[in-house]
Lab assay of single mutants.
Amino acid sequence: LGLPKMEVFQEYYGLPPPPGAIGPFLRLNPGDIVELTKAEAEQNWWEGRNTSTNEIGWFPCNRVKPY
């Protein structure tokens, strides 16, 4: 089972920042694999864990694709 995984195809370094105070941003590099921890199809921002860095944070969902 486990959490859904997504592959990063466009880098994200915190700009634009996540809206409001939902949480810290998650740095993404192309090729990184992100395990989704909070993701809803109608939301533009998802939370996940970058398996390369083990960091957890928020990122724009348009930077990832199904793994």
Rank of each mutant, 00 (worst) to 15 (best):
L1C: 15
L1K: 15
L1H: 03
G2C: 13
L3G: 07
L3A: 09
L3Y: 13
L3D: 14
L3P: 06
L3H: 05
P4Q: 15
P4Y: 15
P4G: 15
K5S: 09
K5I: 09
M6D: 01
M6N: 01
M6C: 04
E7V: 06
E7P: 02
E7Y: 12
V8C: 13
V8S: 05
F9M: 12
F9T: 12
F9R: 08
Q10V: 09
Q10L: 11
E11H: 13
Y12F: 05
Y12P: 00
Y13Q: 13
G14F: 03
L15E: 05
L15C: 10
L15S: 12
L15G: 05
L15Q: 15
P17E: 11
P17L: 11
P17D: 04
P19T: 04
P19N: 04
P19Y: 04
G20S: 08
G20E: 13
G20K: 09
A21T: 05
A21D: 13
A21C: 12
A21E: 11
I22R: 13
I22P: 09
G23I: 03
G23H: 06
G23T: 12
F25V: 13
F25A: 15
F25W: 12
L26W: 02
L26A: 03
L26M: 06
L26C: 04
R27W: 06
R27L: 10
R27Y: 09
R27V: 08
L28S: 03
L28R: 03
P30H: 15
P30R: 15
G31C: 07
G31F: 05
G31A: 05
D32S: 03
I33H: 09
I33W: 07
I33R: 07
I33L: 13
V34P: 03
V34K: 02
E35V: 12
E35F: 12
E35R: 04
E35T: 10
L36H: 04
L36C: 14
L36T: 11
L36F: 04
T37W: 08
T37N: 09
K38F: 07
K38P: 07
K38G: 14
K38C: 11
A39F: 14
A39K: 12
E40A: 08
E40S: 11
E40W: 08
A41G: 13
A41D: 14
A41W: 14
E42N: 09
E42K: 14
Q43Y: 10
Q43M: 11
Q43E: 15
N44K: 12
N44D: 14
N44T: 14
W45G: 02
W45A: 01
W45S: 01
W45T: 04
W45M: 03
W45N: 03
W46N: 04
W46L: 12
W46I: 09
E47W: 07
G48N: 00
G48Y: 04
G48D: 00
G48S: 01
G48A: 06
R49K: 13
R49I: 11
R49W: 06
R49D: 02
R49N: 08
N50V: 04
N50T: 03
T51C: 12
T51F: 06
T51Q: 14
T51G: 07
T51R: 11
S52L: 09
S52R: 12
S52K: 12
T53R: 08
E55Q: 13
E55D: 09
E55L: 09
I56T: 09
I56Q: 08
I56R: 12
I56C: 07
I56L: 08
G57Q: 01
G57H: 00
G57M: 04
G57D: 00
W58D: 03
W58N: 00
F59Y: 02
F59I: 02
F59K: 00
P60V: 01
P60H: 01
C61A: 13
C61N: 12
R63D: 00
R63H: 12
R63I: 05
R63V: 13
V64I: 06
V64D: 01
V64A: 06
V64F: 01
V64Q: 01
K65S: 07
K65I: 09
P66C: 13
P66S: 09
Y67S: 12
